[in-house]
Design a protein around this nucleic acid. Structure first.
Lengths: 365, 365
DNA sequence: CTGAAAGCGCTTACAG
DNA sequence: CTGAAAGCGCTTACAG
């Protein structure tokens, strides 16, 4: 379609034909493609009657500039609608204003909330956030790190600790400050914000045990490190209580979903009709089980108690309402971002922030 | 402007005075804070025994470089682990490799899918995507545009057409190629990828009418332009059928949610017990109504038929399964990204891509 | 096909 | 407190 291609070409010509208007006396010969027609620092400086360095300092709020001069510069910048060119700034200062966030999946609602929260703290500070989705693949994470490193991000926000040696090495060599989200590390010098996945699994097991349940199952999907840690906590508690049965662990590698939850629930009950309590690694699985139970006339929690994880929005509303572990996902993002900012400022900061979790017992258990 | 010309000329002299030494003997005095310790193009060029321009061209795949030379350069770059400095590249070429995506809300699941799809097409091409969440606020969108413009993005992906005069003006003056998502425009020169929101509303009304329903309501929240367009299509069809009753429109300004859906459903039935069909502007509202009906013993679709919008993941699984308009959200993102890429390449492209929608009749209607 | 020159728009480092 | 000089690491524009 010509109607698109044409305008683009014409636009380019337009640029060439109006160089003087904005840029006072810049030599017209090469103001075409290299110049962007935007006011530069030099123009601001000229208008304010100061040098470019002074203008630069005034605009950055460097204290050494006299208030009167600074005012003049700011006024000139305003009048011109000046905004600093980030590329020039980054090149000259060898310091970018971006932060990279690496998450296992953009399509998993779970990571949107921290991501959103990170945006909320970074954007108002003029920091861009570059997002990397590595699709739960460590090699892809390494590739992302390699691709983003040249951008010299001020810092990185990573998910968990499970990465390749290569990634670890790249990150270490780059000396870029990193904060790890969702899991906790006690290692000194490793910044992390999250909660204990294992303790959460233990809490669910204890709760179910207290309800007098004995045949307890774990249904999980995706099987990332955090899912396994939850399972570990659950398992240990059952073992300690002497009711652990490995046959009641149903682990599926596919992403968790409502549909998969229903399916795994059916399979489990078919094979082990005596199961009386199930812990799901994520609420969507549990919700699927809930719907499936309703269709099959299986009483919840009468015959089987169900407990989910993450407390997704629907869980407080299903029939029956789903018991779940509420996880502080937005808080993790916000605090991780704040922690990174503190580290960048050289301000004192805890290296490990445990935000905890909360078991919300509702109607399904 | 003299203070600009001067330094430049002098810089030129400096360049001349240390042309060959390039990096091998970089004066150690200033390799501290300004230099990043990463290999530069000049180092690659030196190692390959060519000029920096040739190295630059070879690495960018510019055809004019001899294959032998190009190979040498690539080899040198590999050995050095060279990656171009994006800031320098952007500054020199006045062309960035970023694309800005502006969405009304990051916390609304609806916009994650297009965003994800955009990432999937842009990232592999080395294009960064900068995300702007304007919280359904036009003024905030304008602020975002103002803040992102200096980054000189190659293009912008916008949501819908409802924006301030200021935003429109900024965008127009910047001449940055834009693609609009979710809604369609027939205006020439305006690129859009989406579907007809109004037609979708009409389709729901027709479906409900065909089921013999007569007292039809519209329950909506958030009330963004697309929600209103759906309502408009719904309303018109009811009017044409002579069954429109304005009292059966329940519009709520808060974000849509499951909880709100349940509440509005209850209110509506209380005030108008004879309602026999409801169209919800989003599935979460409809799901909330479904749960509420179940709790209140209201037969669905026996007493009231329910139809949602967007076909969110849970809708195919609820009891009863929810009828809904399936919208091509990922496709919108993917096609919008592809369209933008085509425009940037000057390749022919349709200016308006209608991806349609699909009414999925399940058990609730 | 290849390169010497010039420059992109800033900031750092050094003086005064 | 202010500024002249130098440079960040690339690419464009012009020659040959």
């Amino acid at each position: 379609m010509h109607e698109i291609a044409k305008p683009l070409r014409q636009r380019y010509l337009k640029h060439q034909s109006r160089p003087m208007t904005t840029l006072a006396m810049k030599s017209p010969t090469h103001s075409s493609s290299r110049t962007l027609g935007m006011p530069t620092l030099a123009e601001v400086a000229e208008r304010a009657g100061v040098s470019t360095i002074t203008a630069s300092r005034a605009l950055r709020g460097v204290a050494t500039v006299g208030t009167d001069l600074a005012d003049r510069v700011r006024k000139a910048a305003d009048e011109l609608g000046y905004v600093a060119n980030p590329a020039a700034r980054t090149l000259a200062s060898a310091r970018s204003t971006s932060v990279v966030v690496l998450i296992p999946s953009l399509s998993n609602q779970l990571f949107i909330e921290p991501l959103d929260a990170i945006h909320e703290v970074m954007r108002p500070r003029g920091i861009e956030v570059l997002i990397g989705d590595y699709h739960y693949c460590r090699d892809e994470e390494e590739r992302l790190v390699r691709n983003y490193l040249p951008y010299r991000p001020m810092g990185m926000l990573l998910t968990g600790f499970d990465r390749t040696e290569g990634t670890r090495h790249l990150l270490g060599a780059s000396r870029i400050p990193c904060v790890h989200m969702m899991e906790l590390s006690s290692a000194p010098g490793i910044a992390s914000v999250g909660f204990s996945q294992q303790a959460a699994g233990e809490a669910v097991a204890q709760h179910l045990l207290q309800q007098g349940r004995k045949r307890l199952a774990y249904i999980a999907a995706q099987l990332d490190p955090r899912v396994m840690q939850r399972g570990e906590g659950f398992r240990r508690t059952l073992q300690a209580a002497g009711v652990y049965d490995p046959a009641l662990e149903l682990l599926h590698p596919l992403p968790s979903s409502i549909g998969l939850g229903g399916q795994l629930f059916r399979e489990l009950l078919q094979r082990h009709p005596d199961v009386d309590g199930i812990f799901f690694c994520n609420d969507d699985l549990a919700q699927g089980a809930l719907f499936e139970a309703q269709r099959g006339g299986i009483a919840i929690p009468g015959r089987v108690a169900l407990v989910g994880f993450n407390d997704l929005p629907a869980s407080a509303h299903t029939v029956p309402r789903l018991s779940s572990i509420h996880t502080p996902r937005s808080e993790v993002g916000r605090e991780a971002a704040n922690l990174l900012l503190k580290m960048l400022d050289g301000r004192p900061a805890a290296s490990s922030v445990d935000l905890g979790f909360e078991l919300r017992v509702r109607e399904s258990s």
